[in-house]
């Protein structure tokens, strides 16, 4: 029962946070709502027994990514509020389309299984990648079966780092500044 309460509470919070991100005019507020949504999502991960991911979610998203956002907002240090209202056509089309997506997903929901298998703390021999709560099996899987993707992901982060440094660096460039504002 606890789980159910947690689920309803935090999914409501998450959806509220998400909607507030879309609707709020001030980016600082939006970022804070975003943190709300992300932390709520972490709690939802907890209700799904994905403890490691929940921790990761809080650390990476709420901790790093959103701080980055806030940092950029502070750094730009200008009035970033949107002045114009959203386009009615766009809003209508957006609502229709997103509604369609939800509708399709809802049509389907009955097909999946609804019973959760019980969770063991160690993988069984026949099924090494059965769902477990411990982070140990997570590590095992990442470093054996998913060794290659993890290496690739490492390079992905390297690329992101190099790129961010390159693009964010403030240096004098031989550029076509004169064309700005045209």
């Amino acid at each position: 029962m606890n789980e159910e309460i947690l689920f309803y509470l935090f999914s409501t919070l998450m959806l509220f946070g998400g909607s507030a991100v879309v609707l709020s005019r001030n980016p600082v507020n939006a970022a804070l709502y975003m943190i709300l949504a992300l932390v709520s999502l972490a709690v939802l991960f907890l209700t799904l027994d994905a403890f490691f991911l929940a921790a990761l979610q809080v650390l990476v998203y709420a901790g790093a990514v959103m701080v980055l956002f806030l940092f950029v907002i502070m750094m730009l240090d200008v009035d970033l509020r949107e002045r114009s209202r959203p386009n009615i056509m766009a809003a209508a089309l957006g609502l229709v389309t997103t509604g369609a997506v939800v509708a399709i997903l809802l049509t389907w929901v009955g097909e999946g299984s609804t019973i959760r298998p019980s969770v063991g703390s160690v993988p069984t021999p026949g099924n090494p990648l059965a769902f477990v709560t411990g982070s140990k099996a997570f590590g095992y899987a990442l470093l054996t079966k998913y060794m290659l993707p993890i290496q690739v992901a490492g390079f992905l982060l390297l690329v992101a780092m190099v790129g961010a440094i390159l693009l964010g660096r403030r240096t004098k460039l031989k550029s076509s500044e004169g064309k700005d504002g045209s």
Partner: peptide
Amino acid sequence: MNDFKLYA
């Protein structure tokens, strides 16, 4: 853990 060894 034998399966993981196979994986590796």
